[in-house]
Write a protein that binds this DNA or RNA. Sequence first.
DNA 1: TAGTGGTCTAGACCACTCA
DNA 2: GAGTGGTCTAGACCACTAT
Lengths: 229, 229
Amino acid sequence: MPITHQFIRDAVIKRIQSGEWPLGSQIPAESDLATEYGCSRSTINRALQQLADEGLVVRKRKGGTRVCQAPVRQARFQIPMLREQIEHTGSTYQHRLLTREIKAAPDEICGRLGLRAADQPLYLETVHLADETPFALERRWVNTGTVPDVLNAPLDTISANEWLINTVPFSTGEVVFGAANASPSVAAALDISAGAAVFVVSRTTWLNHQSVTTLKLYYQPGYQLFSEL
Amino acid sequence: MPITHQFIRDAVIKRIQSGEWPLGSQIPAESDLATEYGCSRSTINRALQQLADEGLVVRKRKGGTRVCQAPVRQARFQIPMLREQIEHTGSTYQHRLLTREIKAAPDEICGRLGLRAADQPLYLETVHLADETPFALERRWVNTGTVPDVLNAPLDTISANEWLINTVPFSTGEVVFGAANASPSVAAALDISAGAAVFVVSRTTWLNHQSVTTLKLYYQPGYQLFSEL
DNA sequence: TAGTGGTCTAGACCACTCA
DNA sequence: GAGTGGTCTAGACCACTAT
């Protein structure tokens, strides 16, 4: 049975953890490891590249491969659709469209979406329910210049999020996590008391350098986002 | 110049975005794409595997490669050391060790670290300061069975986090993000008013199935965690 | 059972960068 | 200049699974 890149990966991690290759030290060259393990250089290369991806080693041409001194821990989060997130726990999902307006946006939103003051984006306010209980409040602005079809979408049937995912796939974006005290209006929508700490997710997406949408999600108090390191 | 896997990756994304390969549809087999682009199958394979990693396509043997119907958005977060995080903004970093005790842990902590009730883990409470202003409060339990040396570490000089990273490298772990109203004690440590919404990061790490440490970080209100999608 | 992706090999050329 | 990683090729065998 040939040596797999996974085997090499594990072996390298063990040799680092055992102290054989201390933090910051240089490890043997690919060709040497290939000889030692009796496999081809490609296999070593693939294993070490994966470790570099994960931030455990740093590689430089001619400089060789070094064990990362202070490995930057990375966490990968799944950002699922709220419906899947809720149905996955066995609850029933519903959403209620509270507001649907076409109007000028505040400066902050214009800046984020790259709109001129005269533009008229679509503003949506939606409550997502799990078992008829408010789960999250969504406040969203959609750039109607980029996605004009959104004005004809049946947003009371399908949530704006799902409609956009199916219509504008593979956009790029950014996410920001934070915490905030629930404002009176947020508290009312979530049926909680004002001032309660809510988890906030802000998201903005683009398609080919054109802004698509920006939104904030205010989660029910106690909500937690989980990930492995 | 040979075709690079990066070129193939970009080309595939363009063909998906253009609608040539709709959501959920099957795309040509690796060998066909290799013929079409005049490169070897390995190059196609590498490009498609990367896209599968990113969640844009799903691959199955014999089933072929399909464009992902509802791409699960993934965000990758860097979890830097607080010192780097603070110094990166140009502020000066300090930390103050408020509490250092060896004592039995509450049930919740015992469960998380896999301790027996009789075990005596190390409890540490630290404030991390940016320009002499409280930036985050850290409450940490360390499993002295796994890392007995921690009892001799100069934790007033080097923060527990840095000491552990340098001593117990490459442990596995999990992270949980959430929001909470500052309790009176948290508020006092951060010099804020009780009830303010703080961003909370909980982290637990293991080394070879042995728990190392678990901690909660309470950030100054307004703190945000940022990532690209 | 046949077609697909998963992987390894052996060889090659190149770009980078350290000494 | 020389050694390292980055990458592509052409070929091969195998594991899985849809039909």
